[in-house]
């Protein structure tokens, strides 16, 4: 069995490139070579687009359309259900809470992570051990989300007062006189904040690295000139550095908004949405795989798609404008 598997893999490793190369070769021939300006040469890009378009269509466009269709069908997709799924979800407490939490995540998580990332980028820029500091701050980003969530579950662990606290958060706080250990993940509404802290811990390093790169791109002359004109550091940052970094900030914010819309692992591992910590992606997973309700799961997927579209469009337009300006 294993031998057959290995041989199959080897065969595929040979066949796939051969097929692609033959395709390129044949299309080139069919388009009549690369002579500029001829009718056939203009069709060459079309040939090159076809494989990508097929893959994109099959793995992205088709599932998207199918999901939209399924969202109007019943649980096992055997009957047309009209707007039932949509109507149900908007009267479903679990879904509404998930919707609210995703909004909270978008606002607070993005705000905190971007702000922290910016501050740290500026601060690390001014120290001699910059490389080390950045590496340390970036480390959490290299841990898988599930592992990070498991680690933080231990960080938040609760033991009744009087026992030795195995959770770092409670253990650290217990040096404060009169402190009672808290079950951080079970304390509405702080449990949502506790989950967001995990996200901030993971992604701040990522934001820092991107911002830091952008910061290095700003001409020192501008900053120097402002300083000579008597601008204070705060003014330099807000009037010169930040505006010059605005495009990077937009990209990072866009990335975080989309990341947070589909936030799943942290919630799934740490609370599974209990005590009002549910988020859309976790709800979708439950509807789909635990409750086998394809209709409702698809509605949530459609909602996520609808929520992502304006962010992506805004981002694209901003960049299109930027290009035109150059």
């Amino acid at each position: 069995m294993e031998i057959a598997g290995i041989l199959f893999t080897l065969a595929m490793a040979l066949i796939v490139p051969v097929v692609f190369l033959s395709y390129l070769f044949v299309s080139e021939k069919a388009a009549g070579g690369r002579r500029r300006g001829t009718q056939t040469a203009r069709s060459l890009p079309v040939f090159w687009l076809i494989p990508a378009a097929v893959v994109l269509g099959f793995f992205l466009i088709y599932p998207m359309i199918d999901t939209i269709v399924l969202s109007f069908m019943n649980a096992d997709s055997t009957r047309f259900a009209g707007g039932e799924n949509y109507a149900h979800l908007f009267s479903d407490r679990a879904f509404l809470i998930a919707l609210r939490n995703n909004l909270l995540w978008i606002v607070f998580f993005t705000l905190v992570t971007v702000t922290l990332g910016l501050i740290l980028a500026v601060l690390t820029d001014r120290v001699r051990y910059e490389a080390v500091a950045k590496a340390v701050l970036f480390l959490p980003a290299s841990i898988s989300l599930v592992a990070a969530s498991v680690i933080w579950k231990f960080m938040y662990a609760f033991r009744p007062a009087g026992e030795s606290q195995i959770g770092l958060v409670n253990a650290a706080l217990s040096v404060v006189p009169g402190f009672q250990p808290q079950a951080w993940l079970f304390d509405v509404p702080f449990n949502n904040a506790a989950l967001m802290v995990v996200g901030v811990w993971i992604w701040t390093g990522f934001a820092l690295v991107i911002f830091s790169a952008s910061l290095k791109g700003i001409s020192k002359d501008l900053v120097e000139a402002a300083r000579i004109d008597g601008a204070r550091e705060i003014t330099v940052f807000f009037r010169i550095v930040l505006p010059l970094m605005s495009k990077t900030v937009t990209v990072v914010v866009t990335y975080f908004v989309i990341t947070v819309l589909k936030i799943f692992d942290i919630v799934y591992v740490m609370t599974n949405g209990n005590l009002d910590t549910e988020v859309l992606a976790n709800r979708m997973y439950k509807e789909m795989f635990n409750f086998r309700n394809f209709g409702r799961a698809s509605v949530i997927a459609v909602m996520l798609l609808v929520a992502v579209v304006p962010v992506v469009v805004m981002n694209m337009r901003k960049f299109a404008r930027g290009k035109a300006g150059k």
Binding site: A157, F158, R159, P160, P181, Q182, A183, L185, F186, D187
Partner: peptide, 8 residues
């Protein structure tokens, strides 16, 4: 541990 103990 009270409610916190039961839940966590």
């Amino acid at each position: 541990g009270g409610a916190s103990g039961v839940l966590s």
